[in-house]
Amino acid sequence: MNPIVVKSLKKYFKEKGKTIKAVDNVSFSVKKGEIFGLLGPNGAGKSTTINILTGLLSRDSGSIQILGYEPEENWDYVKNKVNVSTAYYPVTEVLTVKQNLKVYGHLYNVKNLKARINELLSQFELNKISNRKVIKCSTGERTRISLCKGLINNPEVLFLDESTSGLDPDIAEKTRTLIKEYQEKNNTTILFTSHYMYEVEELCKRIAFMSDGKILTIGTSDELKKLIKDQTIEIKVIKNHKDLKKLLKDEGVDILFTEKNTIIFQVTKGSNKTYEILNKIFKAGFKLSHLHINKPTLDDIFIKIARKK
């Protein structure tokens, strides 16, 4: 049984007579112990999906199951074993860090609360500011406080909605390590959204691309990268630079950049075409001093999908 199952989920908002299809017939499931990434441009419907799963938002139609239950059947059971963290909404700002964790600890009925709070505070390096009011904490500190809150009950299912935004690279790296360690130790199921592609690539087993409320594709990052056939090739020739340019033009590739002996061009039909062209270049006797093939990154895919809108 998968801990998160979403089937044909729909949520439309009405605003000034207009219908916004925030989530439009979305289906996916997340396996036990998997970190599953939801990626997509601003307004794709990622947060809306998570808000429905955490019970903050009602859905128009479709079904969801968390830990084997339709949450409405048994919110009490489900919510005690689930948690959410986001950099966007602070925990109670007029309370100190420790006061917040105490309140949430009681809300989630955490056993050995004191020990749990101390453990989290030192894991997230918040000991020094544990008695500071959240309103006085920096963005990065708040983000970590929100993560502590998200882990307070040792959740079986964790929703992370851009929970690392605002962190400096050092802390971000540490935080990712913490999330990973925690996940491996407890076999937690995590649904994750982020705008940092390397983070998604590092953490997530599978990724779903969302745009305009729909899931366009689901796969591992390697599988997704294969979807993009564009490759950018950078070469430097020792001489006869103009002849090479002519050869490339005859092959019908996009030349992006030329300068002195350097040519950068793009092949849009996948790696076979690339090898075919390179073969021709070698056979024609050009001597290369530099060759670099750029494979597509998740960023490229992201940008491509976002621009298609």
Partner: peptide, 18 residues
């Protein structure tokens, strides 16, 4: 209202409280 001002309804009502 305090929860509104602190934009705290999010964590409040995603917790098990009814």
């Amino acid at each position: 209202l305090e929860d509104f001002w602190g934009r705290n309804l999010y964590h409040q009502f995603s917790s098990p409280i009814t």
